[in-house]
């Protein structure tokens, strides 16, 4: 993290992480343009959780809001990490997919509508496993449909991060924004520790975990477009800028050869130290349209 934290000014910021999901979503919109769709008073709850002794939540942990951001049409979908770890179930998955599909329809009808996903999620909700997995497939295809017309921005602020199937959804979005406190990965640290033991991976060791999944590392690896401090104003500005910027020339997930070449170039015969960034940041071209340059892949592996 930056040297900012050794100064008192850091304390004056308005933390984005500390905002709950609904407040996060609301904070991104131009003043008084936001309205919530399928909100808690519509009581669209998970029918599966009560059967398993889990109290459902009136919005199923997924908040959908529509309005304008920097004067442009946008929909924000925020996951509530405080409910079931932000896990995707049948209802929350359907809310997200429908929001993306409506944005896609509006965009096709000449009203470009960007989508911002505020991801605090461990992935598929275990209590609704198969339905959640199906939802992830739908979400991914809806993102890919929308991103032809308007940017889809994934924001991973923390503290939960973005894991499991939803990390794939983030991967196909147009831009990824993270804070240093955010984490992005397929298998979460607790899962790996449980499967392979604490010797292999100590999920309670924050510096180890963040050196692998953390925002700074993901940014250095070129998997993230913008790294922002935990500051609500910076976050709002970043999202507004990216929406204004529009669709990237080429999406990250279309650059299969680039990423494949990086993986093949990795020397896996020795144990990597997570503190050493896998691909040297200096020789690294940002692989999305935001800062697109021709790349010389051969130079990008470790030195």
């Amino acid at each position: 993290m930056s040297s900012a934290i050794s100064s008192r000014e850091y304390l004056q910021r308005r933390s984005f992480i500390e905002l709950d999901a609904r407040t996060r979503a609301k904070s991104l919109f131009d003043s008084r343009t936001d309205r919530e769709l399928a909100g808690p008073f519509d009581r669209i709850e998970s029918p599966w959780l009560p059967l398993q002794g889990v109290t459902p939540q009136a919005d199923d942990g997924c908040i959908v809001m529509r309005g304008t951001i920097g004067g442009r049409q946008a929909v924000v979908i925020a996951f509530d990490g405080a409910f079931q770890g932000g896990g995707i179930g049948e209802v929350s998955g359907a809310k997200l997919t429908s929001a993306l599909d409506l944005a896609c329809r509006d965009s096709q009808e000449g009203k470009p509508t960007s989508a911002v996903l505020l991801l605090e999620t461990g992935g598929v909700r275990l209590q609704e496993a198969n339905l959640g997995l199906a939802a992830v497939a739908e979400i991914i295809s809806s993102i890919i449909a929308l991103r032809q017309y308007a940017p889809v921005i994934s924001v991973i602020a923390g503290p939960i991060g973005c894991f499991g199937g939803m990390s794939l959804a983030a991967g196909v979005s147009s831009y990824i924004v993270m804070t240093p406190e955010g984490r992005l990965g397929l298998n979460g640290p607790e899962v790996i520790e449980e499967e392979s033991g604490v010797e292999e991976f100590d999920a309670s060791d924050r510096s180890l975990i963040w050196s692998i999944y953390g925002g700074q590392q993901r940014y250095n690896q070129g998997l993230v477009d913008v790294l922002v401090d935990d500051d609500a104003n910076q976050m709002i500005e970043t999202v507004r800028d990216l929406i204004a910027q529009g669709i990237p020339e080429v999406h990250r997930s279309q650059q299969v050869d680039l990423y494949r070449s990086r993986i093949t170039a990795l020397d896996t015969s020795t144990q990597w130290d997570p503190a050493v960034v896998l691909w040297s940041a200096a020789s690294l071209a940002r692989p999305t349209g935001r800062d697109q340059r021709p790349t010389d892949d051969k130079k990008e592996h470790h030195q």
Binding site: A4, I5, S7, R8, S204, R206, Q216
Partner: peptide, 23 residues
């Protein structure tokens, strides 16, 4: 609200042990 905030309050004088740091 975080370890980073405590470091900031201390003007950088407090150095948390690694397992408490995410930066």
């Amino acid at each position: 609200r975080s370890m980073e905030d405590l470091v900031a309050w201390s003007g950088g004088l407090y150095t948390p042990p690694p397992r408490f740091k995410s930066w």
